[in-house]
């Protein structure tokens, strides 16, 4: 079986396992929906990592997607339409900001993104009249295709949307990374100058990945708003951006399953660590990341894929 087919099979098995887990333990549905949403956002981070660029500010797009839902929900309560609106808004924002930040590389790229996300955080916090500051905005009940749903049906619907989007973006990212455009991203990391001497604008290659990553983060933000039903400026805070990078390292940037494995592991470790040792869950997460950096540079997906390759060779 070819590598893409194995990955697709693993993705479908993972999706089935999530559905079964959500059926067996209903409260896990909330955790898994958040994990899927964060996995989508991290998938975008992974595209940038392929070009050797780390964004410490992508929570900006998560928050923008979430606030788009919160602002529009009272007048347009349909979940699918809100998702489209969030995707459009963050794509445009990603394009405008990307035109600026794609000129920069490495630490400057990372810190510019961080700075812009903190500007957005401050705007959300200070413009109380519109955003209700740190109190945040409560997202009203949403409908699906014009039909109001009860709580359980609504949770399943948003969970299903997250699952379909995760699979859709995952398949797209896999195809994208194998395309000339995706391969040019890796070329930026190793020999950017050569790309320019082949007639390719490396800046535009990075910009295309940046816009895609903003779109993914925006959809993730919309899903988070629909799931938690409450948005606050903390969604744009720098620690939220750091969390996405944390998950990317934890899951591994070598394959499209990495972000989702990382997000699921992160959310589950956080929930169970917080439940067992309430004051020390950050320490446990930190220790997990330390172990990954020291012993599994490729993250969870790196461990898994190397085992799979060994199995195929044997």
């Amino acid at each position: 079986m070819t590598q893409p087919r194995i990955e697709l099979l693993l993705a479908l098995l993972g999706a089935a396992a999530m559905v079964l887990a959500a059926m067996a333990t209903p409260w896990l549905k909330f955790v898994l929906t958040l994990a899927l949403a964060k996995g989508i956002a991290v998938l975008g981070i992974m595209l940038l990592l392929r070009a050797g660029q780390v964004s410490f500010g992508h929570a900006l797009y998560v928050a923008l997607g979430a606030y788009t839902v919160a602002f529009l929900a009272p007048s347009m309560p349909d979940a699918a339409l809100l998702l489209v609106a969030a995707a459009l808004g963050t794509t445009v924002a990603g394009l405008l900001i990307g035109l600026f930040v794609s000129r920069y590389r490495e630490i400057f790229f990372g810190m510019l993104n961080l700075a812009l996300s903190m500007v957005f955080y401050s705007m959300l916090e200070k413009f109380y009249h519109y955003t209700r500051g740190t109190d945040g905005i409560r997202v009203p009940s949403l409908t699906v295709a014009g039909v109001p749903l009860d709580r359980v049906s609504y949770e399943w619907t948003i969970f299903g949307m997250a699952l379909v989007l995760a699979l859709g973006f995952g398949v797209f990212a896999r195809v994208y990374l194998a395309s000339p455009l995706g391969q040019a991203l890796s070329a930026i990391k190793t020999r950017e100058t050569r790309l320019d001497f082949m007639g390719v604008s490396s800046r535009n290659v990075l910009l295309s990945a940046y816009v895609l990553s903003a779109l993914m983060a925006g959809c993730a933000g919309a899903l988070i708003a629909m799931t938690s039903r409450h948005v606050t400026p903390l969604l744009a805070y720098w620690t939220a951006s750091g969390e996405l990078v944390f998950i990317a390292i934890l899951g591994g940037a070598g394959g499209v399953l990495g972000p989702f494995l990382g997000a699921a592991a992160y959310e589950l470790v956080r929930v169970y660590a917080a439940a067992t040792v309430a004051d020390m869950w950050q320490m446990i997460l930190g220790a997990v990341l330390l172990l990954v950096i020291l012993f599994a540079r490729g993250g969870i997906w790196g461990l898994l894929s190397s085992r799979l390759q060994r199995g195929r060779v044997a």
């Binding site: 994208y176 194998a178 395309s179 455009l181 995706g182 040019a184 070329a187 082949m198 007639g199």
Partner: peptide, 20 residues
Amino acid sequence: ENAALAIASREGIWSPFAPL
């Protein structure tokens, strides 16, 4: 892949769907 990337640069790199 290096050679294919050069060919892609000449022919057009912007299709995100067909493989390199």
